[in-house]
Computed example of a mutant assay.
Amino acid sequence: MKLYYSPGACSLAAHIILNEINVDFDLEKVNLKTHTTEKGSDYYQINPKGYVPALEINPGLILTEMVAILPFLAQHDPHQDLIPPSGLGRAKVLEWLGYLNSELHDAYAVFFGKPLTDEEKSRAYQEIDRLLNYIDQAIANSDTEYLVGDNFGPADAYLFVLTNWSPLIKHELNPYKHIIELRNKVAVRQSVQIAMRDEGLIS
Rank of each mutant, 00 (worst) to 15 (best):
V192G: 04
D24C: 00
F160P: 06
Y108N: 02
G89K: 06
Q190N: 14
L104P: 02
I21V: 15
I17L: 14
V23P: 02
L32W: 12
P84K: 11
E56T: 08
C10K: 07
H35V: 03
D156L: 02
Y51I: 10
D129P: 01
M66N: 15
H171Y: 13
A14R: 04
V67E: 05
K39D: 14
K33D: 14
P78A: 05
F112L: 07
Y158M: 11
N151I: 01
P115I: 09
N101F: 02
A107T: 00
L73C: 06
F25Y: 15
A107F: 02
A155Y: 08
H105V: 04
Q193Y: 02
N101E: 04
G149R: 09
D129R: 10
I179T: 11
W165Y: 03
E103F: 01
V52C: 04
E172Y: 03
P71T: 05
S86G: 01
S102D: 06
Y5G: 09
K121A: 03
Y146P: 10
T144Q: 13
L82P: 09
S122D: 05
L27Y: 10
G149I: 12
L55G: 04
I169H: 08
K114G: 01
A107Q: 02
G98Q: 07
R123L: 08
E119P: 00
N19W: 01
N164S: 14
I62T: 04
S142Q: 13
D156Q: 07
V30Q: 10
I135Q: 10
N47L: 05
F152Y: 15
L3I: 10
A109K: 08
F160M: 05
L159W: 10
Y108C: 03
K29R: 15
Y134R: 13
N47I: 11
K177G: 00
V52R: 06
D24N: 14
R189E: 02
V161I: 08
D129G: 06
K177C: 01
A157L: 04
V67G: 09
R183T: 05
S86I: 02
P7V: 07
E95W: 01
L55K: 04
K39G: 13
V52I: 15
D42P: 07
